[in-house]
Design a protein around this nucleic acid. Structure first.
Lengths: 276, 276
DNA sequence: CGAGTAGTTGATTACGTTCAATCTTCGTGG
DNA sequence: CCACGAAGATTGAACGTAATCAACTACTCG
């Protein structure tokens, strides 16, 4: 439910960080389970050790605090369990599951959904490489949403009790965790604003702009990208029906703001979208 | 933006805590400013020292972690600045203000609002005695919403850097802070669900039920209470117009679910409301 | 290549907004 | 204490946006 990277908006982004291409899932190799993964009771049978250490991971700048000593950086690396592969449509965790770990998305994309008792569900967030998942479980010790992969994905597993322990020793880690949680709070408040005050047209425009900004921070083109989610998932996220999403995209097309071909999106007039 | 008490839902509530009446603002006495308040640069000229120490504050069970040693409890008390009085309509902090402290509502009520650039604003939360305010600033170091008193109120000021320091030393304090932040994340996700999937009727019903539950946890009658906010503020919070709020309340009245006289509310059929 | 899923577009309906008039409550000052 | 004015709340009528229902098209994948 969280965007680790959001709080970076308020910090300068290094040019190198923005230019690094995202690691593809096929570039990640598999290996054996670590003792910590067993201890946390979380790594699935298909858990695999990523060949890439944090220090050389492209998402490094999104997950890790700055200003660590090399000893501290090593301690964090030791704390992180082997990454786990989640195939398209599979769930990383479900509502009610015991909360043990946070998950940093290393590659791929997820949606988080909450289910109403009457069966209706709503998408509460989309999460790409560099985002953090699982903070919803911190409060009660149980997850309060489902996290489902919307393409083949890979996550790093961070046992929360170990992270908490490290927070007690290393101030920058503590502040990093607080900022991640705080960022999630702000992100959700912004979304409440969107759901509470904007028209369907404005919501879709805002959605595209937010996604664009997020991709830009990761070194991708902000103007041309591929949607990982369906119209229905977008609609659920934005509090409207899929037909309405489709209509709004068609309208933007007609107005010359974007160029859509199914899931392929090209933003032609960024300012025009902002003015909607 | 936070409800400290929400996470207590998952923990047993002691009968005594539920039975304690809420301290009235008139019961609080004033005194001088502490060195810490000056240091934090936050206490307003009208800051007053609450005569009541945390240990005998009625809201104690909502703000404080359990299982502290007496030395730790003393340290927390020393850390908390003199409380500050905020009159109806005054703001505790504004968007963009530098984030220095959290605020525990000791008496009264607040709303938090976010402002869109086009001037429209939305209420993102209501906060009563026992709730925590200010977590929105943790991420960026600046507040991302305004907190406005909707009746004469009093808050305890908790300098965040001191709280962070204590989190590093005392595990239960750390977990308490994490749970507060996590609780806020879950609260907002629930609200997103409400805004994204529910009809106006269901939203108003849910609002009344949530408020009722919150009051019950504080030892008040869950069936009969006084709304502190206007229809317009409720509407803004629920993503609808004040007229719609009014119509829904009238409808509930007609259906025999509630009895409303202006801001005085009596819930006649709790289950009926839940079934809406 | 065919089945099934995802997406687009049109027609109709319904819910909530908008605009407006009226009523109530509450705070202020004569 | 009551009168007055302002702000808040209620109710009605007309309107508009997005939902619903439905038909059709375009992809994707065994």
């Amino acid at each position: 439910m969280s965007d680790v990277a959001d709080y970076l908006e308020t910090r300068p982004l290094t040019p190198t960080a923005a230019a690094v291409p995202i690691v593809s899932i096929s570039a990640l190799t598999g290996a054996v389970m670590s003792p910590q993964a067993k201890q946390a009771g979380l790594a699935a049978p298909d858990a695999k050790r990523a060949g890439v250490p944090c220090s050389s991971c492209a998402m490094h700048s999104f997950c890790m605090p700055e200003g660590l000593t090399s000893a501290e950086a090593e301690r964090i690396e030791a704390l992180i369990c082997p990454s786990r592969t989640i195939r398209n449509g599979e769930t990383l965790f479900r509502t009610g599951d015991s909360f043990q770990s946070l998950y940093a998305v290393r590659a791929g994309s997820f949606k988080t959904i909450v289910m109403h008792r009457d069966g209706r569900e709503q998408v509460t967030g989309f999460h790409q490489a560099g985002d953090m998942l699982g903070l919803d479980g911190v409060c009660s010790g149980h997850h309060s949403c489902d996290a489902v992969a919307i393409e083949d994905s890979q996550v790093c597993i961070i046992p929360f009790h170990l992270l908490e322990a490290m927070c007690r020793d290393v101030k920058v880690v503590q502040q990093h965790v607080h900022r991640m949680m705080g960022g999630e709070i702000v992100r959700e408040a912004t979304l409440m604003m969107l759901l509470g005050t904007m028209s369907a047209e404005q919501r879709v425009a805002t959605f595209l702009l937010n996604l664009s900004g997020k991709l830009q921070k990761r070194g991708y083109s902000p103007a041309e990208f591929h949607l990982r989610m369906t119209r229905e998932e977008i609609g659920s996220y934005l509090g409207m029906k899929l037909e309405t999403v489709s209509r709004m995209l068609s309208k933007f097309q007609k107005d010359g703001l974007v160029d859509t071909h199914g899931k392929q999106i090209r933003i032609l007039d960024m300012d025009g979208l902002r003015r909607v």
